[in-house]
Design a protein around this nucleic acid. Structure first.
Lengths: 240, 240
DNA sequence: CACCGGTATTGACGGCCATCATTAATTTAT
DNA sequence: ATAAATTAATGATGGCCGTCAATACCGGTG
């Protein structure tokens, strides 16, 4: 993951390296300057709401640092994490495209810096540069694909397998290699939320974790995980 | 459900009542004529493939009669039904928008008539009438929303609740009221496929059905279901 | 520092579920 | 029409899961 912090990210889109990885990369230098002078950057505290389900969409957000979670709540009050966003990711683009209200909530998972770009500015940029609209189309298409793949996973895998998948995904983003070949992960979310992501109760996840520790593949302590043999974790889900 | 068969559906888009219910309704009469002369209508036998995951997208399909299923298969060969399409629905629009290969397969669930419209024609229509592109954007947005809602359902509901949800959805489409207030459903899919939709084995679904019959809410016989007290089914999932 | 609310662990228990195996019913193919 | 294949029903079994309850842990605030 390239994450050079030259020229303070969030201060100027032109020098923002993250731009290469998201929808804005199709914009010209001039258009990026328009984006830069319109965007408002601000910091969020851990747990702070970015937007809330049901409220109108005023614009689009772009992660600079930290992480954010999309959370959906059903009628019974059950809460499910449906996605985690990282620096470079845009979020809240859906309400923008169709002028709808937010269908889910977004919150900062830790101290984060996030830019906000007003709806009108994005629409203006999309009119100047039609490739930008196509980027967002590609984005929603990928999101739909992810959702379908998760549906298949949820329908066919055991809770343990689903959790191993989740753990490997989190390892890709948050893992640091240790000298002995193991990987140390600093989890961005609580176990309750991880449980919600695999469709299990938190007590059940607690026991799944206990079994993983018994099997010696990982050790859990608070929000720190040490995956002793990453390879054996990947073996476990070879056919998934 | 309005389903008047005037002037043989599938023969001429102009007189196709179904058009009012899908993305084409934004087209002008002249554009509909272009669509009508480009589309190719043909009949499919029960179980016949419409397109297959991995193959290139040549165009878009529009259901005239019958029903079709979108099926996704994972690496282990597990097969999951992710959606059912009905007359008026367009399907396979995703590959068209971005020129990608098919990400899942589609098959006719019974004898069906389905129109095919070549990729080039749809693109030409979208250029003539930008509102059409917006319609497809709205469509993919709704599909993503459905997928997210299903994810929440799968994560929080019991297998029985998920099946009751599925049964009520199928009742809306395929149910006929009987004189005594019950609803008779002719299921379009096998129990195996219903099991895949709720993420359970078919043996488990068989037992769930057994329990529903014990409770007296419905009677199952082959692909026919008689829901004795539709209201009590809806009560069962009041908070979902 | 004590307090508090949310988070996490653990045990007991009942029930549901996946798996395997067998048999029957139904559909499809030849 | 018959055979073959798929779908469905059912029993036995072991294990996992959801629920309830009690307790411990942690991160904040005052």
């Amino acid at each position: 993951m390239v994450e050079q912090r030259q020229a303070m990210p969030g201060a100027n889109c032109l020098e923002c390296q993250l731009r290469q990885r998201n929808e804005w990369h199709v914009l010209t230098e001039k258009e990026i300057k328009l984006l830069a002078q319109a965007r408002k950057s601000r910091r969020y505290r851990a747990g702070e709401a970015i937007f809330t389900a049901g409220e109108p969409s005023y614009g689009i957000y772009c992660m600079v640092s930290g992480a954010a979670a999309m959370r959906q709540v059903d009628a019974e009050g059950n809460t499910v994490l449906i996605q985690i966003s990282y620096p470079g990711d845009t979020l809240g683009y859906r309400g923008l495209l169709l002028g709808e209200r937010r269908r889910f909530s977004a919150e900062a998972l830790g101290p984060s810096r996030i830019c906000f770009i007003d709806q009108q500015v994005v629409k203006m940029l999309m009119e100047r540069n039609p490739a930008l609209g196509l980027q967002f189309l590609r984005r929603i298409n990928n999101d739909l694909d992810d959702a379908h793949n998760k549906l298949v996973q949820n329908a066919t895998l055991s809770n343990r397998s689903k959790f191993v998948h989740l753990l490997l995904n989190l390892m890709n983003r948050h893992g640091h290699p240790a000298p002995d070949g193991s990987q140390v992960i600093n989890l961005p979310i609580s176990r309750r939320d991880m449980a919600s992501m695999i469709g299990a109760r938190h007590e059940t996840l607690s026991r799944i974790i206990g079994r993983l520790e018994e099997d010696g593949v990982a050790r859990f302590s608070g929000r720190t995980v040490c995956v002793n043999r990453p390879h054996s974790l990947m073996e476990e889900i070879r056919f998934s």
